[in-house]
Design a protein around this nucleic acid. Structure first.
Lengths: 155, 155
DNA sequence: GCACACCGACAACCATATTGACCACTACGG
DNA sequence: CCGTAGTGGTCAATATGGTTGTCGGTGTGC
């Protein structure tokens, strides 16, 4: 009976699931003092990481041009989430690093994601949720980062 | 053992799953003579449906302003996928309808989605895939359409 | 018949991406 | 030591796709 499961529903549900999680994350982040971070910024924080990165590196990791990455960094700098500092060893590079506020946002995001996963686990059962994660791993590329999200949808 | 399943992986996998399906859909659509359709357009086609719709209706269904919907219709009209015709019964309305090319694209999309789902079914097992679909239904809003995708990510 | 709601279009603006160009700096081979 | 190639950051122009606001034309109901 293939007809009772239209093929187009699967991608829609995957996207809706993503949306639900991200929307709830940002609602909660807003309540916890980070109302200005937007979905994309979380990926940027992840791409910056503990060691910092230059705008050009961020562009490569996120799959956008270095100019676009630079503009995003500008915005995050205005919001107080990152700082730019000249690299002492390489006069060309300006290293982008998370501020305390940036780390706070990253830590809260991680905790909220845990809580959201726990909610799904309670709703579906831990075994079913693990099965979903396992199955998704089997049909998606292994490298989780390097998403080139920004340009993908609106390009 | 909650730690071995970081909460942030779940949304990422959901998004990657969506991406994989949509990317493969559009690769195949391009091979089958529709290289210019973009991910968003599929949602617009679905929103137009068999009976057609006005730009304002499309805006409501897709969660964007009527102006934005109108611009998208402009683009699809230029590409030859939809036509605008004045409504004989209501002088205000201009009904957007799919052209033959639009229907062709929609039909091919449906078939490709079925093939992609069959691929996942073969990889995961039909029972596991059904379980994933069932679980996603339980944690996502019931109304599949009305996505307001366009504004959501980049807004 | 008239107030109100709705549709479509135009305009101005904003956000985010792109490409191209340019300059400063580093690394390296002659 | 120096010139060339490659890299990083920024400015400029452009494209896309979204928003709000406005306005004229058209139905609809009291």
């Amino acid at each position: 009976m293939p007809g009772d499961r239209p093929g187009f529903e699967l991608p829609l549900r995957l996207l809706l699931g993503f949306r639900v999680l991200i929307d709830e994350l940002h609602e909660e982040l807003a309540r916890q003092g980070h109302p200005d971070v937007r979905p994309m910024h979380g990926f940027v924080f992840q791409a910056i990481g503990r060691d910092g990165a230059t705008a050009a590196e961020l562009g490569r990791r996120l799959g956008v041009s270095k100019q676009a990455a630079g503009k995003t960094v500008d915005a995050l700098e205005r919001l107080g989430y990152v700082t730019r500092r000249a690299d002492a060893n390489d006069g060309r590079r300006k290293v982008v690093r998370l501020t305390d506020r940036g780390y706070d946002c990253l830590a809260r995001s991680a905790r909220i994601f845990e809580e959201l996963r726990a909610k799904w686990s309670a709703a579906l059962g831990e075994d079913r949720l693990r099965a979903m994660e396992d199955d998704l791993r089997r049909v998606t590329p292994p490298n989780v980062f390097r998403l080139d999200i920004p340009s993908w949808f609106g390009g």
